[in-house]
């Protein structure tokens, strides 16, 4: 394992498998226990540095760190005078002075965790940066798929929606293909990045054609403001062409699962009956998120400091 987890390219297949296996072992070690706490990171300090609101991701990392007995500091920089970049470096130096062993960073600017990693000694974990990556989300998605389907190699995953602006999609494409899954991106052409043809994926504009051959359907959140920028004509048209409703869910193979990184727009990209169906792994994804993040923190911070 490298020192930081900035993007999924930091993980080769062996590393990624190690994270997933470690996650499974941690879940097993904690299953049914009254004391859901391990002493592994006692005396280590983890800072949750969130420049962007994301209560669910922050809580997930916080719980993961606390279950490993790390000291956790939540540093919410949103709303303070952190519109200018200089503050990122100042913040980094402050954290450095506090002796942070691990920094979990969420930022609206792509690449901010890379910059941070150049300025601090501790390990940096990217908790989502701009439209770049969200590696722990991809790890928890991969873990959830493996948990439900028993494998990743050869699993057919359809990633549906706003790929262009989605860090979740970028991380999942990289990680799932590293782990042997076959990824198909499904979106209107306006929501696919230029150059997507160089990605190791299949691209389709037709959700109905993809669903019968999908083991996993991963729905991405579509933000309504994209409508105003003419990425698609209307929410209704988007939902009709790319939304997952009960009728579409019915054509999925028997064991296929439906995933969503949350938060969902029910009625937009996913219908309530789909989100609440037995195929849905949305609740499991949240639970797995804590275990995956424990595994990542253990693997990055558990060992000898450099």
């Amino acid at each position: 394992m490298r020192k930081h987890l900035l993007e999924v390219a930091d993980l080769d297949r062996a590393d990624a498998t190690l994270v997933l296996d470690t996650t499974a072992q941690i879940e097993q070690a904690l299953a049914g226990r009254e004391v859901k706490k391990l002493p592994t990171l006692r005396g280590r300090t983890v800072v949750n540095l969130f420049f962007e609101d994301s209560t669910r991701t922050r809580i997930s990392f916080e719980l993961a760190a606390k279950r490993l007995s790390a000291d956790v500091i939540n540093f919410s920089a949103k709303g303070s005078s952190v519109s200018k970049g200089e503050s990122l470096k100042d913040t980094a130096l402050t954290l450095e002075a506090m002796g942070a062993d691990g920094i979990v960073v969420r930022h609206s600017a792509s690449g901010a965790p890379h910059r941070l990693a150049q300025w601090v000694q501790g390990s940096v974990v990217n908790a989502g940066d701009g439209t770049h990556e969200h590696p722990t989300q991809a790890l928890l998605d991969a873990y959830t798929i493996r948990q439900r389907l028993g494998r990743l190699d050869g699993v057919r995953v359809a990633v549906v929606g706003d790929v262009l602006h989605s860090r979740v999609a970028r991380s999942n494409v990289g990680l799932l293909t590293t782990l042997g899954a076959e990824v198909t991106l499904v979106a209107p052409p306006t929501l696919l990045p230029v150059g997507v043809e160089t990605w190791p994926v299949t691209v389709s504009y037709d959700l109905d054609a993809v669903l019968p051959k999908a083991d996993v359907v991963m729905m991405l959140r579509v933000q309504a403001e994209r409508m105003n920028a003419s990425f698609f004509p209307s929410a209704r048209e988007y939902s009709r062409r790319y939304g997952l409703d009960g009728r579409r869910m019915a054509v999925l193979p028997d064991d296929a699962i439906v995933m969503h990184p949350g938060p969902m727009n029910r009625g937009m990209e996913i219908a309530a009956e789909v989100a609440d169906s037995p195929r849905s792994t949305i609740v499991a994804q949240v639970g797995n998120g804590v275990s995956v993040r424990m595994a990542v923190l253990y693997l990055l911070l558990g060992g000898a400091p450099e």
Binding site: S110, G111, G130, T131, H132, R167, P193, V194, G195, T198
Partner: peptide, 15 residues
């Protein structure tokens, strides 16, 4: 933010 192409897509920087 940078040239629009395969790299901007991967780096998540607006092209």
């Amino acid at each position: 933010q940078m040239n629009e192409g395969e790299r901007s897509a991967r780096l998540g920087l607006t092209g």
